[in-house]
Design a protein around this nucleic acid. Structure first.
Lengths: 348, 348
DNA sequence: GAAAACACAGTAAGCGCTTTCTATCCGTGG
DNA sequence: CCACGGATAGAAAGCGCTTACTGTGTTTTC
């Protein structure tokens, strides 16, 4: 069918073993021989048969990258960083798999990757908090580990301490701290009636951000308000729109809304505008993540910048074993407050 | 090392062949036997060795999807659609590869995919117009085709008629028509001094949109203006910002700017605002693509909606051979004009 | 009731590569 | 001048799976 090692060997007048050694460069081959082989490879347009190679060598060149939503820049940026880190280094192929946020598809993809004997797997994005899923996921990761794949979590918290087996390397964000800083910023501006529009309740990311918010609120003696003025939704624009209206219903005198992330904040802004409220004069709004569009929103969003690219690159290097594991196996990136035009002191 | 077919066979008390047949379901196996095998698979947590399977069957479960920029929703949406179409159907694994718009990396990935013996390859995004690259690319695609991979182009024009060999299936957008409609819209509103901020000159997408624009301008007797008021940039926000300033320098009396796409339009809007110009009262602005954020921009962007999801899904089905090839091997999706708040008649 | 047809299941030959072990050639030191 | 070690290259044994090709009981058919 297609050109094989043997064909190249015949053409170069050497054995298949020699061709393999030239191609993999892990064994001394005389210069003249090597050139002859390389020329034959060129002439025949030989391309290694990956599966055969993976079978014989018992490991493949594939690195899996799982994302919740490939169309969301949050994941796109991280995945792109992982991939570019991997592409830079080796002839390895980073493959991005879109789970659509579904736990089942996450498991399916992990099995598929194990089946491909992936060299490494990077899971990005917030984990689902369902305990049953957590256990199933941990089991799958353990199997991957046992099968020799390096597992790295990126942008999600480490596996719970209760989880059995080896803990995967983790690159995570300080979501609590970010949310706390954002809330403090608003409190410092003088806001007291703050609404919090959280993401899906079952996500760890959501919980951590919410915890950060509550910590700050509690420190200001506003714990009850924080409780009352929290609504949950999805990480999308429509949820932001509906959620803002809901919060306004609960308290028409709200002077600020903290959105779960930038995308949600966009929806919040749209809802406020439709209600005839000005941002930030009437209501301040904050996002989270600092995705590229945050600065272009009108007004430009005050938000927390997550170093998505740096985190993805780090995860990529860890996956390849090109960087030592951080102490405790967990690297945490903090998010910096970006104060822009969507927040201001509340009007009297 | 890990569990193999033979282990499962031993446990189920059958031969390896039978296990393989149960797993692939392409051969009659008695119900009782099948159940025994399935139970053994469960108990041993057996996961097929993909490379071995691919080697023996001479084809893998991998489908490659090439994108220019994974962090850009334009590609993210198409890639997501391809992937969901493929995931729906089969146990195939769609793998998204990020070329970063670099022709070399595009070729590298194609080789890597050929090496993996991918079942199909979908290339999304505008092609680079460099003839040398075009030839190299065509050659690579021919090789993939020869190696048995189904090749599909998505969101890029068909390979030039001059290209030798079999032409890949293509799903494309009517960029010319979209740009024409956009320009006509502005002309109808009464604009005469239109600036066109095009994408990278070397991209086919850029050229087609530009052609559409010029056709409309020429029909209105404004061919010379079109020539004079065209600037090129990248498909990003910064280019929009700089490009808008450049066009304004060329003609301070501009009443409208057509941006290469929505992202560029965002930059244009920022530049105009910084210049103290109001949109659309002083200058009308249009985008292209209708990415999700276009409707959230301030003002909401008048643009052309490209059915990215539908196109990606179609490409996915073609790649899997689950849909007949369109006549001529080319399916064209048109883009609809979405009139929003960023365009208005010019002020007197 | 014997022959032909059928429904399964097993045997075994690869798929194209990697890698261990072995063979060969050559230069070198005693 | 011969034994020896180093540097290369070849032979061959798999890696784990798929899939003709071959059985072997069990129905059907006249």
């Amino acid at each position: 069918m297609s050109v094989t090692l043997a064909d190249v060997a015949a053409r170069a007048g050497v054995s298949a073993a020699t061709v393999s050694r030239v191609l993999n460069g892990n064994y001394p081959v005389a210069g003249a021989t090597r050139n002859r082989v390389l020329r034959a490879v060129e002439e025949l347009e030989y391309v290694v048969n990956g599966p055969a190679s993976a079978l014989a060598a018992a490991t493949s060149d594939l690195v899996g990258v799982l994302v919740n939503d490939i169309a969301d820049p949050f994941f796109g940026i991280m995945a792109g960083a992982v991939q570019s880190e991997i592409g830079h280094a080796t002839r390895k192929l980073a493959i991005v798999c879109n789970t659509g946020g579904s736990p089942e598809r996450e498991l399916t993809y992990l099995t598929l990757l194990q089946r491909q004997r992936a060299a490494a797997v990077v899971l990005t994005g917030g984990a689902v908090e369902d305990p049953a899923h957590g256990e199933a996921l941990a089991a799958r990761l353990r199997r991957l580990d046992a099968a020799g794949s390096q597992v790295v979590l990126c942008g999600r918290p480490p596996l719970g301490a209760a989880t059995a087996g080896p803990h995967p390397l983790t690159v995570t964000f300080d979501n609590r701290g970010g949310a706390r800083r954002l809330t403090d910023h608003l409190l410092t501006l003088g806001h007291r009636r703050l609404g919090y529009l959280a993401g899906p309740a079952a996500r760890t990311t959501t919980r951590h951000r919410l915890e950060g918010h509550r910590t700050a609120m509690a420190a200001a003696g506003l714990a009850d308000d924080a409780e009352r003025l929290t609504a949950h939704g999805a990480y999308d624009r429509a949820s932001g729109y509906d959620g803002a209206l809901e919060l306004l219903r609960r308290d028409p005198d709200l002077t600020a809304i903290l959105a779960a992330n930038d995308t949600v904040a966009l929806g919040v802004c749209a809802a406020l505008r439709d209600r005839g409220l000005r941002i930030p004069q009437d209501v301040s709004v904050t996002g989270f993540d600092d995705l590229p569009f945050a600065v272009d929103a009108m007004p430009a969003l005050t938000t927390v910048r997550l170093p998505l690219h740096a985190a993805g690159a780090r995860a990529g290097r860890l996956a390849l074993g090109r960087e030592d594991a951080p102490p405790g196996g967990v690297a945490t990136f903090r998010g910096d407050l970006m104060v822009r035009d969507s927040t201001a002191p509340p009007r009297r």
